[in-house]
Design a binder for these strands. Structure first.
Lengths: 232, 232
DNA sequence: GAACACAAAATTGTATACAATACAAGTTTC
DNA sequence: GAAACTTGTATTGTATACAATTTTGTGTTC
């Protein structure tokens, strides 16, 4: 049954679960920027009507992971270079402050969780699963925002981190790991020590470093078929 | 005909136009926090099917102007005190930087537009239309963000300004004008002179001032009927 | 009057049918 | 061969019907 293949629960897919699945696929680069997201195709994949798919697509559109053009349909967003710079600028403005707050609030459980994220990211890289590593790398940033306990700003950061995965798909220049290993380790150390100023500075330079790794040339990547990308 | 009363155009209302109309009504305090937004009722008011209304409501939900609970419907959001503080904190983080950028970029046309906003706001206050004044006051902030030419951050600010109107409806303590007259004038002067540091400082203190005007007690306001509020 | 049970009505969630628009393929004209 | 036109197909936008859930109203019991 198509449902149990794509959504391993006994319940029908909801718009929320579909949006989450698509978001994860985009984040892990299983769906490339520019990929057309047809309503009928997704409805068939998830075993629901177009109504539910449309709601999911609208949700994704609001966080700018996809573009919906009236009468023309939905596709995975392809941020322009300008948007790419804007996203990283916004992160450079928000995340250092968030790291500062997180350093003042982090519990040992928080630190342990962040360390597990780093370990999982490296495991994914060694398993030749860069998409998974990228997702976990982004999640690391989202977790710091959660620890900072400012939900409004954490929501913005989550959006920016998700969009970053699109930008990385299009503009990333380096061959190495996406977020360098030592940057995340150093951040966790600063959080563990409650060193707010250090955490803030480290986060700022980490993001400036990421921003500097954007390439000025656009790239194209072969897009796997939609069904292929979503069958996990 | 119901359509031409509420939407003075010959075309049927779209989900976008409905979302905009509702957003304006919320912003001007014609619809109060907590007001139930029934799909059938809105569908009748706007002369469209529930499908279009649902799309509009989803859009408003994504910017947190309304809350949608599964199986229970949509209502205008009532931000908690915590959310209120978060929203103003986020504004204090984003808007000073935006004012700084705007000061470096403002054209004479931009300045003239901002001055018109201030004049219109005062006219609205003298016409005993505080809702309109509030909307224009918020728009002033959105315009500065637009001048700063960073669409990603401007988008966040727009969301925060809209949510601020809900917060003001619930928590505002002062009887006087919502944004004090001289604060906006001083900002425009700093922008006109290209004084980035002054613009940044003025914006920060303006927002800190707004934040300090939040009351700790919640208030209730009589909610006009939905049709009444939307008939403009 | 309060609490409970049940039925009816209202509302929300979803599927499906139909209308509107865009796209692709084939044909005609220059 | 390129451009314009026509036709058929695919896709998106919307209304409507039906299913599922919640709310309201009514009656009964204590």
């Amino acid at each position: 049954m198509s449902r149990s293949t794509v959504t391993p629960q006994s319940q029908p897919a909801t718009s929320d679960s579909i949006a989450r699945a698509l978001s994860l696929a985009i984040h892990e680069h299983r769906i490339a920027p520019g990929t057309k997201l047809g309503e009928d195709e997704l409805a068939e994949i998830y075993g629901v009507s177009r109504t539910v798919v449309r709601a999911a697509l609208q949700g994704l559109s609001h966080v700018k992971l996809i573009d919906i053009r009236r009468n023309k349909g939905a596709s995975v967003a392809s941020p322009s270079l300008t948007e790419a710079h804007e996203v990283f600028e916004a992160r450079e403005l928000l995340e250092p402050r968030t790291a500062r707050s997180a350093a003042a609030r982090a519990t040992p459980e928080d630190i342990a969780l962040l360390e597990r994220h780093i370990a999982d990211e490296h495991a994914a890289l060694e398993a030749a699963d860069p998409g998974r590593a990228l997702y976990l790398s982004g999640l690391f940033h989202n977790e710091i925002a959660r620890i900072a306990d400012q939900a409004t700003i954490a929501g913005f950061i989550e959006t920016l981190v998700a969009r970053s995965s699109l930008i990385i798909a299009l503009y990333w220049r380096r061959e190495s790991a996406l977020c360098e290993k030592h940057a995340h380790h150093a951040l966790v150390r600063a959080l563990a020590e409650g060193d707010a100023t250090q955490a803030e500075d480290l986060m700022r330079s980490h993001l400036v470093d990421l921003h500097s790794a954007l390439d000025l040339r656009e790239r194209n990547a072969r897009a796997p078929s939609l069904k292929e990308a979503l069958s996990q």
